[in-house]
Structures are given as C-alpha cells and as structure tokens.
Amino acid sequence: MFSTIYVEEAVCDHPRTRKILQHFRGRTVIECRHYGELLNLKAQNFRLQKKQPALILAEKQGKKILPAPAGYHIGARHNYYFSHMLNCIYDCRYCFLQGMYQSACSVLFVNYEDFIHHIRQQALSHHDEAVHFFSGYDGDSLALEPLSLFAETFINDLRNISNIWLELRTKSTQVRSLLALEPWPQCIVAFSFTPEDISKALEHGVPAIQQRLNAIDKLQQRGWPIGLRLDPLIDIEDFEQQYRGLLQQLFSVINIDNIHSISFGAFRMPENFYNRMTGLYPKERLFAFNMERHDGIVSYGESREQDMRNTMREMLLEYVRPSILFPCVA
C-alpha cells in the first residue's frame, strides 16, 4: 500500500509509531522534521505521487478539532470535525484533497490521545447537549483501520461520554475492528456512494458498491447505526435513472430502521481547488463539462443543484421518512 514511510523525529519512539512500523518491515523508513516539509513543497505533483503513495507518521500540533462548515450537520446544533489523517489511499477524481494538498502523501497523526482529550473537553463545554464530531473530512476514516486502529481506540475512549456522537465517514470495507466491538448507538458508520457507472469512472481504488454493502450488512446485523452519504451528487445525462438504480441497490440490503441519517449534496468546489484539479487532470471528462463559477465556487449552478437535490429527496422519500434526510448546501 505504501512504498515509503516517513516518520517525524518527534514521534519515532511513540508506541503507536512502533506498532504501525511493524506492518512495514523491509520498507524504507525516512525521518523528517515535520510533515509540512513534504506536504507543503510547491514543486510537486499530486497525480504522479498517487502512483506510489507514501505514508507520513506525524504528531498533530495546534488545534485538533474545528467547527464543521456551516450547513453541514445531521441533526445536532453543535458540530465539529477532526482529521487524524490528511489525504486518502483512494483516488476519487472529484475529491477536494487533490486541490487542497500539493502532495499525495498520506499523513497519519499518531497522537490520538490528544485528539480524544480535546473532543472530551469540547463535549463537556456543551454540557448535556448532543455534540457531533465528524471524522473523515480529510481522508477516509476506516481505510487504514487494520494498521491505525483509529476507530477502535477512539470508540473505546469516547463511548462513556453521553453527549458525544461520532461519525466515521468511509468508502472502505475495513469494518473488522468495529465488528469486534460492542456497538455504540452514538457512532454512525457513514458510507458514501455514487451510482455504479460514476463510481467506476471516478472512484479509483474504492471497493465496489456490493463490497461496501456487504460491510454495511455485517455492521447493521451487529447493531451499528448506518449513515448514507450521497455526496457528491454528480450531474450526468441520465441522472435520475442512475441514482434511482443506486437507491434500489442500497435499500435492497440496508434495513431502513438502522439508518441514522442520509445526507446529499451536489458536487461543488472552491475555484482555486477546481483549477488545480483541472491542471492535474486536463483530460478528465468530469472537469470538461460546463460548470458555473460564482463567488469563488465552481458548481453546477444554483438552479441545477436545486433540481438535483429535489429529485434526490423525492426518490429517497419513497424509502425513508423525511426526518433523517439532510440536504447539504455547504
């Protein structure tokens, strides 16, 4: 999975670093001072680096959690996100990470205990009100679980705090550690989907829809709440037919009583990210169709987005109650 491993000098002797490095015996391990030395260099190419991605084990300094973007929530008033990882082992062509980072190196912050401490503090500051913490904003939450044990560690340390809700957002099938745990009703395992044709064209390296559904099936049988993230909605010629087919596929396996929430929102991107992504993949069809540029955002345009959301909502209402639907306009 990773041909080269970089380790920040400060975490060389961290027990988690040592444990993770056991998975990479025989690989080249290179010490660095700070992950920014690799991530922030201008003269590098995300696309080329995706061919042989590297892993950086680092220490997260400064702020560990941040308020979620306005408009992004699944039912709570207080919403935060955190990133124990930067970048992703998958390679979705619509992913904003390509536009945000110069490098495709995946960064894994090994100081989980600092994140957990800040999450607890933030939850306590809201007393008894529900606080949602989203993971998987800057990379897939579960894709590296077998070596990172991120979910297992965070769930075990946070489940006794009554107002914490945790979302693990993923496209992976790495659910073994969750299946071994006692289900936590406040941890939503949220799977992202696009229809089969779109997934095949744009989601490189991502497990097939059926494989993800198999993982969901195991989780729901164990009693884990499931989230569905139909995000981003990609506009295509036969949009309605494609997404209708996807919903049929999803709801043939997923028990609607196990679904905590479904969010959906159209593909949109800050203009500077979009320009960088287009520069990386000038021949990518996704970027070759007409898009609107408005106030620094590239999108399908307000009215088309509205149509897409409405169509999606109507199709979803054929299966589920409206209270679990969360259109995303952020």
């Binding site: 041909s3 080269t4 970089y6 260099l41 680096q49």
Partner: peptide
C-alpha cells in the same frame, strides 16, 4: 531519498516512485 544542505539545514525528499534495483539512502 532525503537530501539535506549542511549549511542551511534545508531538506528535500525526492519521492521514490520508481522500482529500481538501486538501494536508497539519505
């Protein structure tokens, strides 16, 4: 795989993208 300038301590990390029979070192 890592090049450091002794005078400035600036480092470069040329990504190792190619399978080659050569080993790598700092």
């Amino acid at each position: 795989n890592r090049i450091e300038d002794h005078a400035t301590q600036h480092r470069y990390y040329p990504p190792q993208l190619v399978d080659t029979p050569l080993g790598s070192d700092c």
